[in-house]
Design a protein around this nucleic acid. Sequence first.
DNA 1: CGGGCAGTTGATCCCCATCAATAGTAGTGG
DNA 2: CCACTACTATTGATGGGGATCAACTGCCCG
Lengths: 293, 293
Amino acid sequence: MQSLSCSASNKTALERPRPSPLRIATPTDPDRLASLAPAGRTLLVDKDQPIYAEGEPATFCYRILGGCVRMVKLIDDGRRQVTEFLLPDDLFGLDMFDAHDLTAEAVIPTTVCRYRRAALEALADRDPAVARGLRSFAAHGLRKARGQMMLLGRTTAMERIASFLLEMTARASRPGQDQVALPMGRADIADYLGLTTETICRALGCLRESGTIDTSRGRDGTCVTIHDLAALRTLASAELTRAGVGLRSGRDGDPLAPLDPLIPPRHQGWLGRERSGGNGPPLAVTAIFLAQT
Amino acid sequence: MQSLSCSASNKTALERPRPSPLRIATPTDPDRLASLAPAGRTLLVDKDQPIYAEGEPATFCYRILGGCVRMVKLIDDGRRQVTEFLLPDDLFGLDMFDAHDLTAEAVIPTTVCRYRRAALEALADRDPAVARGLRSFAAHGLRKARGQMMLLGRTTAMERIASFLLEMTARASRPGQDQVALPMGRADIADYLGLTTETICRALGCLRESGTIDTSRGRDGTCVTIHDLAALRTLASAELTRAGVGLRSGRDGDPLAPLDPLIPPRHQGWLGRERSGGNGPPLAVTAIFLAQT
DNA sequence: CGGGCAGTTGATCCCCATCAATAGTAGTGG
DNA sequence: CCACTACTATTGATGGGGATCAACTGCCCG
């Protein structure tokens, strides 16, 4: 894997190569930052090129300066799962094992800064606050992974798309801004949400027709304008990263109340669209979602 | 949602004497074990009772002495995701946050030993080896969560069941033994695999008819006898916790090789049932997996 | 201008959810 | 011990959500 090729450097909105130390905010004292010098220079990785591959020795960990990275897991028949998208300032590669267990690939031309994992471990051994920071980092990753498990196992296509748009909005847009850039392609989104590219397209089409969003295509992916954030939130059904109100236990908490679903999970029509065609264009189903705002 | 009603609170968490220290194997030196005195006595938790609920302050973490625990995440319309099953000697509740972000419930009557999280954190601050052990623990959790994401997003029902049986066999049966006890009910398995109880039943029925397994029901769940481990491995398609042989990158690694699927994901008939005439079992693919042992 | 690719849209199919009914099995009380 | 209850597992029938197959469109780049 001779990735990390340094080629065209002025195509995207990349920052200038500027090495900087890794700064780890410690949970006990957010102002105190432990620093670690980067190993080598800033790396520029071309679109779709791997930064490291699954199984490779985990010598380095990385921080994104600009661009976007996907973490990929695949089985040999070609099926693929994108476990995560990483954006500027995100850290990755802290796998704590001898070998990386995911492949990291650049979604668009991406600049990363890398650090020696061993040096970071040594720093953590010396400074308990750094160690706590790393644990907290892992805990965040676990929480997010659990949310994604809920999403993949128990939600509909529309809920997944809506959740995804909300997640990207929260992470990649300036507050108050109603536009999000989606640097990744439909296939990446599909493999992230456990769907197909066609389903992604159809769901986005639905949202477009209902006036919830607009989309435009640029050089580096899609730009989504969100017109009705509330509708998106309704479609996402629940913030999947944190559960609902009631602290109900399993199915057996109270045998008297037979657990009536507030929102039946299915039966909303295929992505909310009308089925029997021929007559007028009735978009009445959409109103159901909009009315709940 | 007035769940967690204190109706049967006297049944939950009976106290029993049998303290034992928490022993953390450090990755650098597996023989050296850091010890932490348990907080209080051993707890006995009744079937289906919570040990702690999502959102509760995370004061303690736990180790299972006997029984089985499920980690549950749910959204308010009743949909549920079981993120993990925990068995004797497993640790849980190390959430690294102020509040637990999952609910822990006993699957069958279960004894747990609990420890003060703060004490463990303090121990980790004092002893870097313990801190490493905790990080390694979190890393294992992350790896497992990613495998589950792959399973939930990109596999068929039969592959999930087969994977589940293999996982439980690896964890909960003595080596060389061909029997596994499944303490959890079908609904728990379904919520773990992102399926329904009916699908679980049907898949198990298929495996039974094909002679791959046998099932029997006892007081504490199901007991599965595995007759054809190789067939199960074939059905599981790939060990989902670690990927296949090739370190291929994404869809675009090599435009010359159009990524031919070895095993078409679908089109095997409903749960692998016979489609055309059923003759002998051609299990040649199995050898690939067995050879890696 | 044309080849190639990602995105989009349409038609069809099928895996699995859903609804419904039956068969075990544990628990209880007589 | 056996009815009776309550639940869980199982099996069957049916339908739908999303995958799959197949064009087609629009944009980029040579």
